Simulated assay, not measured.
Amino acid sequence: MSTWKAFPHPADAFDYDGDKLWKHWERLHAGDQEPWPEDDASREAWRAYHRGDFQNAVALGLKAETASGMNAANKAQSIYATYLVDDEDEKKELFEEVADRAEVATKEYPDSINAHYQHAYALGRYSQAISIAKALTQGLAGKCKASLDKTLSLADNHAEAHVALGAYHAEIIGKVGSMVGSLTYGVSKDASEAHYEKALELLPHSAIARVEYANGLLTLYGNKRIKDATKLYEEAAACEPMDAMEALDVAFAKSELSDD
């Protein structure tokens, strides 16, 4: 494995050594509902993830050989690929790896909330990388939706799954239109917005929920909702990050505003 890029922002505030991780766990995992890991190895993987040491988080998480360790590894690799990888082939390869590992994890740990969610997340990002049209042709949308539905059946307050479902509805409509989307895939604009709103209700401090909601509005309505989307980007840019992923979310929101 080649050396991954370093986390590009100050990370001192994201050091959750010792009992700091326990004290902040509920806030750090409000979005994904990951249970507190009972073993030291998995906790170390999550500490590495939260401070942005993504490559080490993957190594530690896989070494732990637990559901929580696997989830830490998969989330670290997915966030790294989402934000810090520019090469499209490398990005697709990283997401494929996560999707494959997570699929195995759903069978080995069927009650692990984030085994199912990470499977859906990686498939969704992979679909974006190859194009939504190709993903629909390959049947990836159905697999992604099934894993998101399973996630919510295990934890109906999983805000990140609601965000992903909002994007699922929006991106299919953006590609095939409302009528075909409704008849063929059962998607709708109302459902998309409802999932985004539910995510913000569950996770009011979230930058990424706002960013994805803004992206969804632009996909669904174009410039008709540009003011609403801009407001969401502005709110996201003003969020206070608690870990490396959130810092990358906020930085992305700021970059979207600077591009306008």
Rank of each mutant, 00 (worst) to 15 (best):
M1E: 14
T3V: 12
A6D: 14
A13Y: 02
D19Y: 08
D19E: 15
K20R: 15
L21Q: 08
L28Y: 03
A30C: 02
P37K: 00
D39Q: 14
A41F: 01
A41P: 01
E44C: 06
E44Q: 15
Y49R: 12
H50W: 08
G52S: 09
N56M: 10
A57F: 03
G61D: 07
L62M: 12
E65W: 01
A67Q: 08
M70F: 06
M70S: 13
N71R: 12
N71V: 11
A72M: 01
N74Y: 00
S78R: 11
S78C: 10
V85M: 08
V85D: 13
D86Y: 02
D89S: 12
E90S: 11
K91G: 02
E97I: 06
E108P: 00
I113K: 09
A115N: 04
H116G: 05
Y117N: 14
A122V: 04
G124W: 05
S127P: 00
A129V: 05
A129W: 03
L136G: 03
G142Y: 10
C144K: 14
L148F: 07
L152T: 11
S153Q: 15
L154S: 05
H162K: 13
V163R: 15
V163W: 13
A167V: 11
Y168S: 02
G174R: 04
G177R: 11
M179Q: 13
L183S: 14
L183D: 10
T184G: 09
Y185K: 12
V187C: 12
A191W: 04
E197C: 08
K198A: 12
L200S: 08
I208E: 11
A209I: 03
Y213A: 07
N215W: 06
G216K: 13
L217W: 07
L220T: 01
Y221N: 03
Y221D: 05
R225P: 02
D228P: 04
T230N: 13
K231C: 00
Y233V: 01
E235M: 08
A237C: 07
A237F: 07
A238L: 01
A238Y: 07
A244T: 04
M245F: 02
V250H: 10
V250D: 04
A251Q: 09
A251N: 05
A253S: 06
K254C: 04
